[in-house]
């Protein structure tokens, strides 16, 4: 595959800022969950958010995404309100899924966030239909499905990639391989070394990229998006990423051999260091960015606390159009 357009400085700073915000926002959610104020229903994305946000940086605002259960950075990158996502967790007014889906199913169609399947990998097949509709109704736009390595072992992966490839749909399959399916290491669950190796079975490009390197992630995404927009069909990207925390909030990760060293792989401090080393950001800039992120998070928490609970009758609504 030929190289895509490189990421510019402004984009890289934006990836950093958004990553800081996502990291701090999720940390706050964990804090509130541990304190009992919110349900512990988040699968924290810490460590993977840099790759997620860098990939989304390669999309246009009129493109669409479906996503997996690993954090809320996707939504933050697309500009979904933090307070609304907290409301999703708290079951309050403002919740994007009106108390039906919680933080796992954040949705904001005007911002291109189409939602998430409850069954793992369930959105593979949905993404094919989205691609079919885009091809007919909104040519030149694309849909990206972010999924984990674990869900790549489900049947819908196969059905979806095969048929999306046959139809040359504008779909991008972005695998975040963090080495674990909940507690099971990929090496024990998956016969191939790389998920991207399976691309050959569908006659689509398969690319492995270092998910801790936002510039590299952006480049391969840029290429895949260009290919999809040109009508050449899907690409299977596999970003090798780092899951810093457990599968869910209270997961102690006893199963994990790299537990003591994983923090060293955290891409966020590295990105900050790179930006400072290259003279793009000063320490003052970094301090401001972090303070601004904390302020946004606190404002969102205050807004969520002020919002009323959803009325009980909402439970009966939204089944039918």
């Amino acid at each position: 595959m030929k190289k895509g357009e490189p990421m510019d400085q402004e984009q890289l700073v934006r990836v950093y800022k958004t990553s800081e915000l996502a990291r701090r926002f999720e940390a706050k959610i964990v804090e509130l969950a541990m304190a009992g104020e919110l349900p512990p229903a988040l699968h924290v994305g810490a460590g993977q958010e840099v790759a997620q946000i860098a990939a989304i940086e390669a999309l246009r605002p009129d493109d669409y995404i479906l996503y997996g259960h690993r954090g809320v950075a996707y939504m933050i990158a697309r500009g979904v309100s933090l307070a609304d996502m907290l409301a999703d967790m708290a079951g309050k007014e403002g919740a994007t899924s009106r108390g039906k889906g919680g933080v796992m199913h954040v949705v904001d169609v005007p911002k291109g966030i189409l939602g998430e399947s409850g069954t793992l990998g369930g959105s593979f097949v949905v993404s094919v239909g989205v691609g079919m509709a885009l091809k007919r109704k909104q040519p030149d736009t694309v849909v990206t499905y972010f999924f984990g390595d674990g869900t790549a072992n489900r049947g819908p992966f196969h059905e979806a990639l095969n048929w999306a490839a046959v139809q040359k749909l504008p779909c991008i399959y972005f695998c975040e391989n963090n080495g674990f399916a909940i507690s099971m290491p990929t090496s024990r669950s998956t016969a191939v070394e790389n998920i991207a190796d399976r691309a050959a079975g569908y006659n689509v490009p398969g690319v492995v990229v270092d998910g801790n390197d936002p510039v590299a992630v952006y480049e391969v995404m840029e290429q895949a998006v260009a290919r999809a927009r040109a009508g050449h069909g899907p690409t299977l990207i596999e970003a090798k990423v780092t899951r810093l925390q457990g599968h869910y909030v209270a997961d102690q990760q006893e199963y994990r051999a790299d537990i003591d060293t994983v923090a060293e792989k955290d891409p966020l401090p590295k990105l900050q260091q790179t930006l400072c080393d290259r003279g793009i950001l000063t320490q003052t800039d970094v301090d401001d960015i972090q303070a601004d992120a904390d302020q946004q998070v606190e404002a969102a928490v205050a807004a969520m606390r002020a919002a009323p609970l959803l009325a009980p009758e909402v439970a009966l609504q939204d089944v039918y159009a």
Partner: peptide, 16 residues
């Protein structure tokens, strides 16, 4: 069958 119906849901949600 999975993708036939699942794609139907995706396509329907996008206006087909």
């Amino acid at each position: 069958e999975s993708v036939m119906v699942g794609a139907g849901v995706g396509a329907a949600s996008m206006g087909l």
